[in-house]
Structures are given as C-alpha cells and as structure tokens.
Amino acid sequence: MSEYLWFEGIPFPTEEYEKETIEESRDKFVIRDEDTVLVTYPKSGSNWLIEIVCLIQTKGDPTWIQSVPIWDRSPWVESQYGYPLLINNKGPRLISSHLPFHLFPKSFFSSKAKVIYLIRNPRDVLVSGYFFWSKMKFVKTPESLRTYFEWFLKGNVIFGSWFEHTRGWLSMREKDNFLLLSYEDMKKDTKSSIKKICDFLGKKLEPDELDMVLKYSSFQTMKENIMSNYSLVPEDKASSDLVLLRKGMTGDWKNHFTVAQAEAFDKVFQEKMAGFPPGLFPWE
C-alpha cells in the first residue's frame, strides 16, 4: 500500500506522477487555440467523454478507438506518460486532465482552446472511486467504504476535494470556450449530449454518423473494447480484477450509503456548494 504524492496540497497517485511534471505542465506547457481539453474529477465519466469526442472526430468510424489505447488518443497532461506525448504532437490535440483549476496549465487562460468539463453526482463519484482505487496498487487503499467516505468529505483522496475541484472549474461557466456537461444528462439523453458537444466543437455529424458515435460509445461496447476498458493496465499496477467500467449507472450510491451518511453528505454539499444557482446540478 502506497501513500500519495502531495503537490501544493493536492494528493496524486505515486505512479505516473511526479512533482516536476505537474509543475512543468502548469508553468511551461503551451495550450494552443485549436486544442480541445477534457477535464473531469476522477470517476465522473472521463473515459466515456474521451470515447465520444474521439468518435465525433472520426465521424463515428471506430477504427481509431479500436486500435489505439485511450491514454494515447487523449493523453493526460499532468502525467509522466502523457506530458511528453502532448509536447511532441504537432496537430490540434485532444488533452485530458483531472487537474484542479489552480494547477491547470496557465497558458490555457489566455488561449481560445475549448474545454469540456464533465460533472457527476459526487455521491456516485465517491462510491465509484472507492471500488476503483481499492484495486489500484499505487494509491492509499481504504479498508472500508466508511473510511473512504470520511476521506472523501475531507478531500483526502486522489486529486483532492470534489467540492473545491468543481467550484474552481465552474468559475469558467460563463465563458464561450467552456462547456459544462453532467454525467446524469448524458445517461438520460446521450444523443442530445453528443449533439451539444458537436455544436460546441463546431463539428457536423450526419444522422447515420451520430448513430455510429452512439453505438461505439455505449457502455457495453466500451466495456468490450480493450483499447478503452483499461484491461491493458499491467498487473504490477492494478489487481487482475480491476474493472474500470463497473456499472455505468446513476444513483448507485443509494445501494451503499447509510441514512446517516446520506444526511452527512447533504449537509457538507449544502455548505460547500452554496451560492450556485438552483438547477445547476441535475441530481439535486
């Protein structure tokens, strides 16, 4: 069991991350106007969003998503693996990140690059995170959901507090180059969400192309695609029963929280997310 790598108050995994890379990505990495950035707090549907955007780029043709690992198609800017890939990529780039707002590459804020921020009910994020990180060998693993619940509310989990992360990124929500999506809306009406992404990115899909994007980004298809389901992660980094795509549903937290936990969570949510307009969070 490993602890975390701490950088400016934020815990990172000890594998694939080092302070120098995180610092360099923030201070020196140049985000170009033609780049597209996909930002999420971990376990919010990150890989689903990447898959959809990749398929939009190929107009529904699955060749790319079936032949290139997901972390090569949209590398993580803060990771040791992804950072050099992005630096050496000449064309318009697809960039993924879990970084909180204050650690994000500074160059972004004076660029016209488009960022899509995907949020998900933090209760579901918590449950999904618990099952995922428990299988990873390079993070502090919780012995029970109760322990993880406490860590999560304190922000003592990978990439820090969900509340801080979300508040930070939502400060961008009035900007033209920022699109806010929710996992819940994407589940409820995937087609409309794909159209919304297309409009934002200035892409046009024919009806049959849209159907292909829908088909190849479905939960079941992604679960079976070895380029997207993380089955290529080496065994020294994760236990063999790691499941990236566990349930892909909304509201699973109700199967795991006690009544007291649900109440405690509500209280913290109300405190930390005060000031946002009603209806912004589709799960409230």
Rank of each mutant, 00 (worst) to 15 (best):
W133K: 08
E143P: 13
D33S: 11
S171A: 12
L205T: 04
S110P: 02
S240F: 00
F200H: 08
H256C: 10
G129S: 15
F219C: 04
A113E: 06
H102G: 09
D199V: 12
T58M: 03
N47G: 09
S79D: 12
F131Y: 15
L232I: 11
K112P: 02
K247N: 11
R73Q: 05
S192V: 08
I197G: 00
Y148W: 04
N89R: 15
G279Q: 05
Q57M: 13
T58S: 11
D176Q: 09
K223L: 10
D72P: 00
W64E: 13
F132M: 08
F200D: 03
Y117D: 04
W71G: 02
P282D: 06
F29S: 01
Y230W: 14
E235P: 13
E184G: 02
S228Y: 06
E143T: 11
R93W: 02
E164G: 00
L181F: 03
S46Y: 13
Q66C: 09
T21L: 11
P69M: 10
D199A: 14
R73V: 05
S161Y: 02
F152P: 06
K204H: 10
Y4L: 05
Y4T: 07
M212W: 07
D211S: 12
I31S: 08
E78T: 10
G168E: 08
L170I: 08
V53A: 05
W48A: 01
S46E: 05
T36Y: 08
S111F: 00
M222R: 06
Q220P: 01
I10A: 12
R26M: 07
K237G: 07
Y81R: 14
W169H: 01
R123I: 07
K204R: 11
L118H: 06
G248M: 09
M222F: 10
M227W: 02
L145R: 02
M172L: 12
Y81P: 00
F163Q: 11
P100W: 09
F7I: 07
M172N: 02
S107Y: 03
F178E: 00
K188R: 15
E164T: 10
Y117P: 01
Y216L: 03
I158D: 09
K114Q: 09
K90H: 05
T221L: 12
V268Y: 05
E184L: 09
E271G: 00
S228M: 14
W64L: 15
V68S: 01
L201S: 07
I87K: 14
P122K: 13
I50N: 04
G155F: 01
I197F: 03
S192P: 00
L5T: 07
I70H: 03
G279N: 07
L126F: 14
G155L: 03
